[in-house]
Design a protein around this nucleic acid. Structure first.
Ligand SMILES: [Mn+2]
Ligand SMILES: [Mn+2]
Ligand SMILES: [Mn+2]
Ligand SMILES: [Mn+2]
Lengths: 218, 218
DNA sequence: ATTTAAATTTAGACAAACCTAAAACTTTAT
DNA sequence: ATAAAGTTTTAGGTTTGTCTAAATTTAAAT
């Protein structure tokens, strides 16, 4: 498996949200920042290797093997992100690009040992679940903050947008995973939220609210 | 810089033992397990980038920039080897292949943080020196065990051959870096050595003796 | 000093991963 | 139902890094 092949599998998995949906050529091209014609070439190759189901003009989906490979790469990506944050003191907005490289290192032993060193983490620094060796992970029952109603209370457990910009914004405003968030009020006019985060009052725009995941506690 | 370009620079550095020697095309081809014609192609490219001095039929040498890049890759390789042994409990015969991959990860910050995590090690698990950020390292004053005379005494500080076979042989015979070695006798007939290693008597062939580095203590 | 052998370079080809432009297919709108 | 628009594929190229086979240069041997 080449790096490129791995990246395509990962892209298909992410676009399809792990399901068996049919993914369009254009969607993959966009995600990969490449051209549709390049995607077609690659789909033929991955199909030849039985990693995707591909029928001309009909889109692609991952085969069981393709899916398990995608999950293995995602596992590596997220474990490395944890490593960078926990062991090397990277901040959560700096880890993604390095993990994009590290995820392609081939060594079963390496990743097992890393998993152990990190004490078998279940989530990465952005709240995304880390598949185990067999590709299994439990999806957390979480909602976007924007879906909550007034008086709902929950724990901040993840980010939808994990761009450096957004993460730095959260840092600046001292919002972090694990924080307790209560919806005090919703502003109909602009969709902004009045919150209490760890006992401090806060107002966030609807854009922010629709990129934060919370687990409702009551 | 591509992985391949990095590997060529490293190969030239290793063949030339860090000096400014003129390296032959064939030597590089052998080291890289590739064909001389491929080497020629690459030398043209590296020359174009001012990383090597290349004149047709006259061999190549690293430029100052090429050398500092080679050293940076070697630094990464060896730091990763230390990490694998110290933090992930790899044994010294398992680290090289993984380090060959990890050495190409591009992130200045990553390698600085790794260096810190490992507490700025000076030597890798095989006794090879780790260049600092500026490419500086002190060469240990060491000799091959085979060069010692009867009654010479020293500390085992490195291996010349760091193949898995040799390292496993040393493990099996409980010979490790840091051991104190004394030459009790040399056998003229087959060049074998009668040793005392950590108070235990030992006989090793000349092949073994010419692949172990020791630092003479008296 | 030639001839022979070895080392090195050139010429031409190939696979991987990408591209642009044009053709073919599907979907949407009239 | 047909035309227009959008999507996807094909055709033909490019770059990187490799290869084989042939030509060239250098080194060794007679
Ligand atoms: Mn990431
Ligand atoms: Mn992540
Ligand atoms: Mn090594
Ligand atoms: Mn080493």
């Amino acid at each position: 498996m080449t790096h490129s092949e791995e990246n395509y599998l990962k892209a298909i998995f992410h676009i399809g949200k792990g399901g068996a949906n049919e993914i369009s050529t254009n969607a993959i091209a966009e995600q990969m920042e490449t051209k549709p014609s390049s995607v077609t070439d690659m789909m033929k190759k991955l199909s030849e290797k039985n990693l995707v189901n591909y029928k001309k003009y009909k889109g692609v989906s991952l085969t069981a093997i393709g899916k398990s490979m995608a999950l293995s790469i995602i596992r590596k990506h997220r474990l490395w992100e944890v490593f960078l944050v926990e062991k090397l003191d990277f901040s959560w907005d700096e880890v993604h690009d390095v993990a994009e490289q590290l995820e392609h290192i081939e060594s079963e032993k390496l990743i097992d040992k890393l998993d152990k060193l990190l004490d078998y983490p279940k989530y990465d620094p952005h709240g995304d679940p880390i598949p185990d060796k067999n590709g299994n992970f439990k999806v957390m029952d979480k909602k976007l903050l924007s879906e909550l109603s007034v008086n709902d209370k929950g724990i901040c457990v993840g980010v939808k947008d994990s761009s450096s910009q957004f993460l730095k914004f959260l840092d600046k405003n001292k919002i972090a995973l694990g924080d307790i968030i209560e919806v005090i009020d919703k502003e109909d006019f602009d969709g902004s939220f009045q919150l209490k985060i760890n006992a401090n009052s806060f107002n966030v725009s609807s854009q922010i609210a629709s990129n934060l995941y919370v687990q409702i506690t009551e």
